[in-house]
Design a protein around this nucleic acid. Structure first.
Lengths: 191, 191
DNA sequence: TCGTGAACCGGGGCCCTCTCCGTATCCTGT
DNA sequence: ACAGGATACGGAGAGGGCCCCGGTTCACGA
């Protein structure tokens, strides 16, 4: 399923160089980085870029798929190390930090949890949703998470909280506080 | 303070037409609407648009300042009609719906609560922050809102929740649910 | 009515996205 | 080793957006 025909050598080379250039450019200028510029950095024509990655979304996804997989992997690690409820909170914190620190990942994860019926099936989205489903399910069985929320709700809310934290501090230092406001709620703790 | 020199008649006319055209265009195409197109709709040259509104932000603000004031006014109405805690929740819901339904207002309110140190003092931001401060203070005195949150935190989180609700449904029908997840928290209700 | 300067207009420079097709490069079978 | 087809490349160009500038128009006050 991955690649029925092996890519031609030059195609593969250009593909790799584009990914590297894209990661640099997105880190530098955010998700709006110029695609022509990325092509230039990679030393290829713009047509080549568009052949490999028909949309900006596709390029973003290819550039960050490793990081997304790593984050999804962390979900399982945390699930093994901590009780379900704490694992979920810890993972949400890491996710939030990742979204803010790695410029461009926000748009990617955002589109992964968008309900537009089309193209919702992205590789990144699948990984993240699967990870969230495991942690959410465990926490709900344990009773430390409301039973009426879906994994995708949690992901959307974290995306939102990351947006909020970003407004407060571009460096994401206040992330933890905002995540806890979400998990605990705005009401005072009832003793 | 508003306008030291009265505007020339044609300037005033063009200003008004631009605002009308802008409101239409933003409603139609979202906050990214083409500025040249707005100028064309208004029947003025693009230079005129840029003289009146040096930035897209300025135009957004001018186009929606009425709506923002209305929302801020609603805060006081609700404060009179309901107990503080309920008033705050009701207002947050209205705010959230407004952010989603009126395309373009999201960016505006977002920038109003951004901590970038520069240009944070916008007319819209001032109104909304003042309204939030009143409701938040009352709810905290009543004891139905955590004492450790600032009004601006609440506004940022609502902005984030609106983002989340938007991901779920472009029409904002699930807004109420997401707002309540924020106010109640993700933990189960402890009886 | 008329002079003056504020306000307008829209063309043009610059940058971005995305497509098209002639050309260069690679791969395979002999 | 090499011919020939398959594959990928490149970069110009169309289309559109942002924004500024210089000549022109027109509202206002005397």
């Amino acid at each position: 399923m991955t690649q029925v025909k092996p890519m031609r050598a030059d195609a593969r080379r250009n593909y790799e160089r584009l990914l590297k250039a894209a990661a640099e450019a997105f880190a530098e200028h955010g998700e709006g980085a110029s695609l022509d510029d990325i092509a230039k950095r990679a030393g290829v024509g713009s047509g080549t870029l568009y052949r490999h990655f028909p949309t900006r979304q596709a390029l973003l996804e290819a550039a960050y798929v490793d990081r997304i997989k790593a984050l999804s992997g962390r979900a399982d690690e945390l699930g093994r190390e901590l009780p379900p409820g704490e694992a979920l909170v810890a993972w949400l914190n890491e996710l939030c930090v990742g979204i803010i620190q790695v410029r461009g990942m926000k748009a990617l994860l955002g589109s992964a949890v968008t309900d537009d019926g089309v193209a919702a099936v992205t590789a990144c989205g699948t990984h993240v949703r699967a990870a969230a489903t495991r942690l959410v399910g465990a926490a709900q069985r344990e009773g430390t998470l409301r039973a009426d929320v879906e994994p995708i709700d949690v992901l959307r809310l974290v995306h939102g909280v990351a947006t909020a934290a970003e407004l407060a501090n571009a460096d994401g230092s206040g992330t933890r506080r905002y995540v806890s406001l979400l998990t605990e709620g705005l009401r005072p703790v009832r003793s």
